[in-house]
Design a protein around this nucleic acid. Structure first.
Length: 301
DNA sequence: CACCAGGCGATTT
DNA sequence: AAATCGCATGGT
């Protein structure tokens, strides 16, 4: 294959910072979903039957996607372009959000400090839900540690030039895992059971991205999600934000969100529901974006 | 040592 | 209906 053919390019949208986006992917944690180094991100993924390893970097306001592993043809090229566009939220117009942000006395600084940050998504619904279940109630460092154990045990490893890249386990594999195995890996009994029952819901066809996308509004999507064990309002809203890309999802009860709102003197404490409501009214239909920027503010470069 | 982490469901009041 | 509890473990 011609080397040139293995590089896919996408023109960057306005109000975009590749560097800010890929920095957010890790922000000093240890996410096994990708490797960020030298102004590039390496990402392994499954597209249909085939496995891919992508190296994504920026050059002259163009996103370059180098396909290191996997075959490139018209179909897979389109698939990869679609994946990156969705992951980086390239089709979203940030201008209305920035217009509102710049008028916000406490948060206007974010326009300069986090300029061009997009809502980095989790395109795969099963992966997204598992990540939420893992992260419930524990600190993020431990959550990433648990996720890595899960992925290294049940996922797919891709070796490339001495480095290992991992693809998140598919639901069939996790549906057949046992709670005992997961408990031995430091998952609580409850989390082990939620992960397996979620995987089984996918296997039985009761839950998938298409079902959610077909529902008419965010309330019905929220209600379907929370009808499953282990998926509460926080998880439902997180997934609607990161995977379904509803613009108006707020992960209510989120510890980081409270912390950020307190840091910015927007609320007194967690029980200050009145000011939380007032705050989000300023960001009508862009709630998901302001949440991402509030989370971003918790991380230190 | 206590208390909280990007919560949730079960149990008790 | 609302408040409380247990969960696994790491960090402060």
């Amino acid at each position: 294959m011609d080397i040139k053919n293995s590089i896919i390019t996408i023109k960057e949208p306005p109000l975009f910072s590749f560097e800010e986006c890929i920095w957010f992917l890790d922000r000093n944690y240890d996410d096994c979903a990708h490797i960020v180094k030298q102004n590039a991100v390496w990402k392994a993924l499954q597209l249909g039957e085939e496995q891919y390893l992508l190296k994504i970097y920026e050059k002259d306001n163009i996103i370059n996607i180098e396909v290191l592993v996997g075959s490139v043809n018209t179909k897979s090229k389109k698939h990869i372009e679609g994946f990156i566009t969705e992951w980086f939220d390239l089709n979203y117009d940030l201008a209305p959000f920035y217009n509102t942000l710049k008028k916000d006395k406490q948060l206007a600084y974010m326009y300069n400090d986090f300029y061009g940050l997009r809502l980095m998504g989790i395109p795969d619904l099963f992966e997204s839900l598992c990540w939420c279940i893992i992260g419930q109630q524990i600190n993020l460092s431990f959550a990433y540690k648990l996720k890595r154990k899960l992925v290294e045990r049940y996922g797919t490893k891709l070796e490339y030039e001495g480095s290992s890249f991992y693809i998140f386990p598919d639901f069939k594999t996790l549906a057949n895992a046992s709670t005992e195995e997961l408990k031995d890996m430091q998952f609580s009994a409850a989390k082990a059971s939620y992960l397996i029952s979620t995987a089984q819901a996918f296997e039985e066809g009761k839950l998938n991205k298409n079902i959610l996308k077909t529902l008419p509004d965010v309330e019905s999507r929220h209600n379907l999600l929370t009808s499953f064990r282990g998926i509460g309002t926080w998880t439902a809203n997180y997934v609607l934000m990161k995977t379904i890309r509803d613009p108006n999802s707020i992960p209510h009860g989120d510890a980081g969100l409270f912390k950020s709102l307190i840091n910015h003197n927007i609320i007194e404490d967690k029980k200050d529901t009145k000011n939380i409501k007032l705050f989000f009214e300023r960001y009508k239909n862009m709630e998901s974006y302001i949440v991402i920027y509030l989370w971003r503010s918790l991380a230190v470069r």
